[in-house]
Design a binder for these strands. Sequence first.
DNA 1: GTTGACTGGTTCGATATCGAACTATATAGA
DNA 2: TCTATATAGTTCGATATCGAACCAGTCAAC
Lengths: 151, 151
Amino acid sequence: MKDSPDPSVLFRIFNEIAIIEQLSRARLEERLPPGLIAPHFAVISHLINRGDGAMPIDMARAFQVPKTSMTHTLKGLEKAGYVEMRPNPDDGRSKRVWLTAKGRALREDTIQAMAPEMLQVIADFDLERLLNILPVLTDLRMTLDAARDPK
Amino acid sequence: MKDSPDPSVLFRIFNEIAIIEQLSRARLEERLPPGLIAPHFAVISHLINRGDGAMPIDMARAFQVPKTSMTHTLKGLEKAGYVEMRPNPDDGRSKRVWLTAKGRALREDTIQAMAPEMLQVIADFDLERLLNILPVLTDLRMTLDAARDPK
DNA sequence: GTTGACTGGTTCGATATCGAACTATATAGA
DNA sequence: TCTATATAGTTCGATATCGAACCAGTCAAC
């Protein structure tokens, strides 16, 4: 008969992850233009990775945030000229989000600006260990995502 | 001459970590009493782990948040009866934060309430892999923390 | 085709986060 | 001792997050 494992390891992992998230977010936001914060950058990144023309509701689901939050984030990006919102010709209810050249440049410039800092962390750390945890984190993210309440 | 390593692995790690943080935070907040969110729980946890009687400014530094945010979080905890704020007899400028019995119970009850979910994740996943990444996450957190801007 | 349920998006109100300015206390230097 | 600087905490204003309610467009049942 197998012992029930101790759940505390997961609590400790989530705790470390929460701290790392906060520190890395602060690092990112230092590099962003004033008025932009991490969610703005995450949206632009998503549009580059997955292709633009996406519907706001799908992005809200992808980020696991309420659609009202996505409305607000997109409004900020649009006002600053990083994205354009156009109606969806296939569905009168929805819109589609398109990156502008300024939006694409922001992503590129920010990555460039952060690269030295990232390289420094890698140098202080150990690349091999980082490479090893990435697939585990990906699997953990997928497990959590699959098990979430399908509200 | 050694190639410069690719910083993209760090970007991907931070991205996965940001998603996991969001999912695990949502799981925690589902279990908390209405009006309490993750930072409230984190503060209570911190006071149990490190001992209460701490000064708000030290907690703000530990969590890497502005002191105004800590003031706000503590005010919420105090109003709901989870902590008590008392003046610091050693320094007229500062206060000390003490847990109430209700605060200690909240921590215990929340962990109990989440345990089944945590065990399910461990069962769906693989305990060994989780145990392996914990020390790497801890080291990464310490590296980031040590390298941060000492503003 | 009409009706009723559903879906994408916004508005609104409540709370959260955070930087700037301010108050009160403490401390170091003359 | 007096004064200047530093520190702990709060207040205030701007923006962010999020749930509830609402509107407009879609779709399924009839």
